[in-house]
């Protein structure tokens, strides 16, 4: 690093003063410091638990959150009102935060899940997992991949997702993996706000104008086919449920359905028909089989990072 040129200590008009404290690269711009989000946390895999399965599970939970966060970010400059734009961005930020911890946990539990980059790349494991995996390596559910649609569709998707994630994280607070348990306990507090935000909007739209109600009903019909996937189980979850590490997908889905049915009833909305029972083994996001929407979403999200794998941000 080049020596910092001497500057007048008393120059109160120097806009750069304080941004370039000698030797503190981490402080050069607000929020840009990359350090291990699990620094000082004991990340050893609990005895009897399977490290690679734990990593795969954390990637599933992280991928769900990251892909929805990216969708929510697409509302920036497009939301109906400034307050809603801020709310959607804030919810996305919480989900990015959860993703970061879950990816870091996955990388610590099984370093082989982290994509290899050219030597000297400064990208931390979380960024490698976010930006250097293709759609077939993502394990998110179809619900989060779907395009935003109108505000009603975004609200419907968010309330379904938040209700489901809350039931998962609530159960994971007692996971045998203390890191996953701690991340979940924090997440529950955040996702409760997300679910309330979306639920209140759902009731507002349902009881609003003829047009807002029509759009809400149309959103429910179009997104409902993605709901069934949330209750499916998979090999990784099954093994980890038996180990006391993961949440039982079927039980979590039951609670999610109970909440959603109650909410729809409150809004005088009909539960869409035609949602089949969860079919075990059906190809879906957890097996790396995705809707076409994920590819274009990742292309937009990953383009710059992939063009500069050794870039410093």
């Amino acid at each position: 690093m080049a020596p910092t040129p001497p500057r007048d200590e008393h120059d109160e008009y120097d806009a750069y003063a304080g941004l370039v404290e000698a030797g503190e690269e981490t402080r050069w711009a607000f929020g840009s410091g990359f350090d291990d989000p699990l620094a000082g946390v004991d990340v050893s895999v609990p005895p009897g638990a399977d490290g690679p399965a734990l990593a795969a599970y954390c990637l599933m939970l992280g991928d769900d959150a990251l892909v929805l966060a990216q969708r929510l970010a697409q509302w920036c400059t497009r939301a109906p009102e400034l307050e809603e734009e801020v709310a959607l961005a804030n919810i996305g930020l919480d989900l990015v935060g959860q993703t970061r911890l879950l990816y870091a946990r996955a990388a610590a539990a099984d370093p082989s899940v982290v994509p290899t980059l050219p030597p000297g790349s400064p990208a931390p494991p979380e960024d490698r997992l976010a930006f250097f995996r293709g759609p077939e390596e993502y394990r998110c559910v179809w619900l989060v991949e779907q395009p935003n649609g109108d505000f009603a569709a975004t609200v419907v998707r968010l309330v379904v997702f938040a209700a489901w994630r809350l039931t998962l994280l609530g159960r994971l607070r007692t996971s045998r993996d203390p890191v996953l348990a701690a991340v979940s306990a924090k997440g529950v507090k955040e996702v409760r706000y997300h679910r309330d935000y979306a639920a209140r909007w759902l009731l507002t739209l349902a009881g609003g104008t003829v047009e807002s109600r029509r759009r809400t009903e149309a959103a429910l019909e179009s997104l409902w086919p993605c709901v069934e996937e949330l209750g499916r189980t998979d090999d990784v979850s099954e093994r980890l449920v038996a180990d006391g590490v993961a949440a039982d997908p079927a039980a979590a889905f039951e609670d999610t359905s109970a909440f959603l049915h109650r909410l729809l009833e409150e809004g005088g909305l009909r539960v869409p028909t035609g949602s089949p029972e969860p079919a075990p083994g059906t190809p879906g996001g957890r097996l790396g089989v995705h809707s076409p929407w994920l590819g274009s979403l990742l292309e937009e999200m990953q383009g710059i990072a992939r063009a500069h794998p050794a870039g410093r941000w």
Partner: peptide
């Protein structure tokens, strides 16, 4: 908050 950028 888990996503709070102020922590760094």
């Amino acid at each position: 908050y888990t996503g709070c950028p102020a922590l760094a």
